[in-house]
Amino acid sequence: MTKAWIEDFKRAIFIAEKDVKIYFLKGPNLIFGLLLPVSLFLSFSIGRAVDISFATPGLVAIAAFFGAGAIQAIALPLERRTGTFNLLLTAPISLFAIVLGKALAGFIYGVILSLAYTAIMIPFAPLPNLPLFLLGILFSSFTFSAFGLLLSAPFRDIPQAMPPATVVRIAMIFISGVFIPLAAMPTFLQVVAYAMPLTYSVDLLRQAMGGLVNVQMLLVDLAAQVLFSVVFLAITVQVLKKNIE
């Protein structure tokens, strides 16, 4: 049993490796991944007095959010349209491992983009707790990759998958405390915000940036992201299973 799980995991890694090579680390996709967060961020922050320590975690979180998630709206539907997804379905590998492989590919892409932004921002905004910040990047990238998969799972083509995924992501950015602190939001939006994975990611990164760590909140942030990841992957598997029925 354990051997079968190890084999499944190894094959998930091979899928991730393949996805990273053929979809994620392509010049246009990397440029898209790098430009989109900064353009979104600038469109909101230009003309406002934005504190760099407040802004940096948001920017890095958006990089992970769009990097890890947005590319999934391309990779999975494209594979289903071109028929290459059938190659995976006919291989001796579980559907969960296929989904996990794809999530790992988005995770790697998200981590690369987030680290790129972190490297750019470090000279302007010192990072008192770099290990926690990196931990935040890892957790956030995986959660957002799983979320991207969930959003693209029902669709068999990119034009179908992109619009709903983009709308949901943009909406989430504005209610997850990236630009506006949660405390400044109306109560009902705060409730909605706590149902969003991005909220926990931003909070975790802000804690690392601020230097003062609230252990209880930190554990909540990490646990929430683990829970979101598990739920997103499980639903994605069920949606894909339903699609092949």
Partner: peptide
């Protein structure tokens, strides 16, 4: 998974 270990598949369109 066990069943698929024994098969090779050549579909009608490229995979």
């Amino acid at each position: 998974v066990e069943a698929k270990e024994h098969i090779g598949v050549v579909p009608d369109t490229s995979n």
